[in-house]
Amino acid sequence: MTQLSSRPGISRELMAVRAARELRPGMYVNLGIGLPTLVSNFIEPGIILQSENGMLGYGPLAEGPERDPDLINAGGQYVTMLPGACFFQSADSFAMIRGGHIDVCILGGLQVSEKGDLANWIVPERGIGSIGGAMDLVTGAKRVIVLMEHRDRQGRPKILKECTYPLTGRRVVSLVITDLAVIDVTPDGMVLREVAPGWTPEEVQAVTEPRLIVPPDCQEMNF
């Protein structure tokens, strides 16, 4: 157990690669701050990225002189514009989000519960946190994917029977992608779809609090 709590899984880049496979051309997608922003490096052409600060159709990160001081994503990174990009004000941006027009959002997480509750805005010991657009996104996006490390810095599970941190949303998460596993949140419970190379379903279970359903077709992540 002690050993499993610190044994490394796949890299952050591979996590982003795996998450990108959930996206299809034609989808409108919002990527949260932190790890999910990496996903933009690996997406297929034709996926349209929405940024809640008021943009559809941003491209790769902008470097050096192509940086425009008025062109950032919601993570504060300078980005480029793709042909067909457009800008809008924040109330329109959140109408788009709340109104169910975003196909997928990929967010970071502090804790995810068996039932798909998400906690990702405050570590209670700190006493102050930031909600940003996360509550709007989990409420309005058609599908919510959480992309996070499987264990916290102390090696403790982040996938729990119940979240202990204040929630961002209740029963909102559809899929969890971590450095160790791909887990579906279903009405019957959490289903282990994939494990990281070198990990067995039993080992993933040992660092996951709720019981995982392991179907016969559970497989190793393939890169």
């Binding site: 809640e52 941006s93 959140f94 989000i97 102050i128 909600i131 657009g133 996360a134 509550m135 709007d136």
Partner: peptide, 20 residues
């Protein structure tokens, strides 16, 4: 905030802009 000299009313970003 920690010294008790300022308050915070935290609001989801979309709720804030819709209230405005």
């Amino acid at each position: 905030y920690r010294e008790g000299l300022a308050e915070v009313e935290i609001t989801p970003q979309g709720t804030m802009v819709e209230r405005i």
